[in-house]
């Protein structure tokens, strides 16, 4: 068990994984884009704007899962003081923030032709914006708080508040009246996206998660090298 937590072992394995993921990434993105841009049909009412969904939905999921993951590792670090996991959440947080912004921007681009507005202060959109601020606060607190002890405490506080916000995002469309539509895909009920659109969506989710894995591993390895050079204390 200890062997698998050893940074140099992880470094070696992550290099192999990275190569594998890199090879998979290009074909996956290509197939996903061909399906979502050319092979999938128009929507009966939105027309071609439905294609924005194939980026918007995966991005939103990535930002939600990303925050859940960094919170998990941050709390783990707070409880058990496992220094290695700081590398994980430092590598993951900027990716989550990026996809959060992608989700907001693509949502806005979709909103203009469908709803007739770029932005609405409804519960779903606002809570996604709040998530962006939580990401920024999280990144700031490990970047600019010098003392590791205090930085972990700040990150943990943001994690706890942010996790509650994740739950709010998830259920915002059910608890309150919002302009944003309810979830089309959920475990609790039958999906309301037609099969011909579900395929490109699934492919894009897969491709973008693979992209996240590649970027994450690259960043993680860079962080590992940085730690090896400087040691944990000077991070």
């Amino acid at each position: 068990m200890i062997k698998y937590l050893n940074p140099s072992y992880v470094f070696k394995i992550s290099g192999k994984l990275l190569n594998l993921f890199k090879t998979l990434l290009i074909p996956l993105v290509a197939i996903g884009l061909i399906f979502s841009l050319f092979l999938s049909p128009e929507d009966y009412i939105q027309g071609d704007s439905v294609r924005i969904m194939y980026i918007h939905v995966p991005s939103a999921w990535i930002s939600l899962f990303g925050f859940a993951a960094i919170s998990f590792f941050c709390i783990l670090n707070f409880l058990f003081k496992i220094k290695n996991v700081t590398l994980i959440y430092k590598s993951l947080a900027p990716i989550g923030l990026t996809f959060n912004i992608v989700a907001i921007v693509t949502g806005s681009l979709w909103g203009q032709p469908t709803w007739g507005t770029w932005w609405a202060w409804d519960a779903r959109l606002t809570s996604m914006l709040v998530l962006m601020f939580f990401y920024i606060a999280f990144i700031f607190s490990y970047k600019f708080i010098k003392s590791p002890d205090r930085s972990i405490k700040a990150c943990t506080l943001i994690s706890v508040l942010g996790l509650i916000n994740i739950i709010i995002i998830k259920y915002s469309v059910e608890w309150w009246s919002t302009l944003h539509q309810p979830s089309s895909i959920s475990l609790a009920k039958e999906t309301t996206v037609h099969f011909s659109m579900l395929i490109p969506l699934g492919l894009m989710v897969f491709a973008l998660f693979m992209y996240v894995a590649v970027i994450f591993l690259m960043k993680y390895r860079i962080e590992t090298i940085r730690v090896k050079k400087k040691g944990f204390k000077k991070l």
Partner: peptide, 9 residues
């Protein structure tokens, strides 16, 4: 307001 249904024409 758009609902949660997506389908081809």
């Amino acid at each position: 307001k758009h609902d949660e249904n997506y389908m081809p024409p």
